[in-house]
Design a protein around this nucleic acid. Structure first.
Lengths: 144, 144
DNA sequence: CAATGTAATGTTATAATGTAACAATTATTG
DNA sequence: CAATAATTGTTACATTATAACATTACATTG
């Protein structure tokens, strides 16, 4: 279920940037990659073998977030891999309340409408959180 | 700083709906209304006089959220009054990282772009979280 | 009004998420 | 190698939220 090419890609990306994807950071990243659903920090913690303490996990998460290799879902307080960790970008997320699956989007219309509304209010954005809860195609298809 | 008319409006709204804005619920609501910034649940807890326990506050918050009288900011884990608690609506929030002020918007363009993107993905939304971090007009105006 | 059921609150304990502070170690650089 | 910076280890704790069960207030209906 894990995309090994993505891990290699992330490693190269860090090399290019002159930042270190250390052992602990890679371990945390791999755990997130191997999960089909967003994982909480303490889920990650439990999967750390050999075991680690919370700060180790949170530091790794901070690094991975800064590098854009993962995202954090504010509504779920959970983490998931970024599917296109190249350029800096704003993503939007479709979160299925039924199956828990999350789809990452980079929708330029949403982006434009957010930026427009913000600038009309004289507001200069640094960061945008867009998380849409509902039912995904599969779950909606399965009736009721 | 508190809009007393809003409290009255909320009371009437609850009466119309046949739900009870009880003493505890009103106390929590008033604390949120009296705060110029979003407040955390434990800030509210501290302001409860006579004192209360966490479940009391969280139950009141749940009620107020369900009735649409307040909103919860997922990024801040904090609560603020809804400025137009009449019809059910989706709001977007501009959150200033400098002064902490939050502006509630109901932007139809944002709404449309979100709904369109979701429906294109076959996703049926039940709830949308849009929180934009940055600097508000005042803070941006104050240089650097 | 009394009896009964439902809704709301009280109370205690604990779960889940995240961070502060400082020590120890590992990399990097001059 | 020595000095410095970056990373990790470790302990303790802060913050946010909920579970479980007892009690009280309210509403309804006979």
């Amino acid at each position: 279920m894990m995309r090994h090419d993505l891990l290699i890609h992330d490693e190269q990306l860090c090399k290019q940037r002159g930042v270190r994807l250390t052992c602990q950071r890679r371990r945390v990243l791999k755990i997130i990659m191997q999960s089909p659903l967003p994982v909480g920090a303490y889920d990650i913690l439990q999967k750390m073998d050999p075991p680690a303490a919370p700060p180790t996990v949170y530091r790794a998460l901070d690094f991975l977030l800064q590098q854009g290799l993962i995202h954090r879902l504010a509504t779920l307080q959970a983490y998931l891999v970024c599917e296109h960790p190249d350029a800096s970008h704003q993503s939007q997320f479709l979160i299925c309340s039924e199956c828990g699956q999350v789809e990452e989007m980079e929708d330029s219309n949403i982006q434009k409408s957010l930026d427009l509304a913000a600038s009309q209010a004289g507001f200069s954005c640094s960061n945008e959180v867009v998380e849409i809860m509902g039912r995904c195609v599969q779950c909606a298809g399965e009736g009721h």
